[in-house]
Design a protein around this nucleic acid. Sequence first.
DNA 1: CGCGACGTTGATTTGCCTCAACGATTGTGG
DNA 2: CCACAATCGTTGAGGCAAATCAACGTCGCG
Lengths: 192, 192
Amino acid sequence: MFQAINNYVSRSIQLTADELEYFNGILEYKTVPKKTMLLQAGDVCNFELYVNKGCIREYYIDSKGMEITLQFAVEDWWMSDITSFQDQTPSNMYIETLEDCELLILSRSVKEKLLLQVPKFERMFRLMIQRHLSVVQNRLVKTISYTAMEKYLEFIKRYPTIPQRVPQHYIASYLGISPEFLSKLRTRLLKK
Amino acid sequence: MFQAINNYVSRSIQLTADELEYFNGILEYKTVPKKTMLLQAGDVCNFELYVNKGCIREYYIDSKGMEITLQFAVEDWWMSDITSFQDQTPSNMYIETLEDCELLILSRSVKEKLLLQVPKFERMFRLMIQRHLSVVQNRLVKTISYTAMEKYLEFIKRYPTIPQRVPQHYIASYLGISPEFLSKLRTRLLKK
DNA sequence: CGCGACGTTGATTTGCCTCAACGATTGTGG
DNA sequence: CCACAATCGTTGAGGCAAATCAACGTCGCG
């Protein structure tokens, strides 16, 4: 149950057996069915969650009522709404499961205690966020400078398993294009 | 000379006098004239820099030869190309001064030593990156869902001093729109 | 079986880009 | 200190990528 996450942690920091046991003890294990809302816009996001099994997405509804998918997360990914989490402000995001999931949940208050008890985790979370920032920045650049076709090709290349697991219109909303146009791009690709 | 940066640090962590002195001792103070290149694409980014005075920008040249400004930094901001910094890979970014600048430079090797000597800094850098991630994510959402006009209005509202300091076409490249179109947006605003 | 969610296709529209020409301002070398 | 070049912003004409709107087919599921 903790094998994957412990492996994740060990890539950044070395823990003693005691520390590892403590860490696993504070995680809340939860199985949730498909299409469960884990966070609603308006609520404060009080958790970070690690996907042990399954697939979830985080999205946002803009002023025109359009959904924009910010992130998918599958096995071995973390998810949270950091803005809400760190400032303790109401979130603009929705987080929902797309499949039946096994999650490990780290609540904000528990995380704070963890950081006091085992300061090594400061480093792990720093490295984790640093990598995440790098990914988001990369995506920002491509959102600005790529055409819709280029964005789609990049997406299926980088995340080849996602299209098999999530409805196509969610991918369109991740890429920032309309579902109709994504469909047209795909037929254009098939004709070659 | 270190007043501003020390104040910056103190917002995240508490240091002893010794620790503070050590920290200031490892920073490299540098004044650089306007239009100096601090990082070239192809080089590895081995530093994080803190702007004590002046204004700089980080940009990227895409496959069509267009410049995309990723970030401006003025007084009390940090800048780096994290992707290159953390992976030690050649950067795709250019960093250049837009005004005469006073900079405090933290090199990668020195930062590593700092983190070993004063682990508290793990926390400061974690919080710093966390805030930055929040900003970049916010920008990503708006890049996708806002019209050019909305992006521009948001920009001048959030960063009211920047337009007075940097050429307009750099702002266009930050917003991901053409300089001509930004100009047209501005005349549209004036006519109201 | 029938409904809702999903993907496709076509017609039309639009936001923004590209290209080109032109003032205004800045800066630089003679 | 002037002359000329660069740099920068503006304006207009025309074009294109992607959005919108609408209709339709298909599949999975209650």
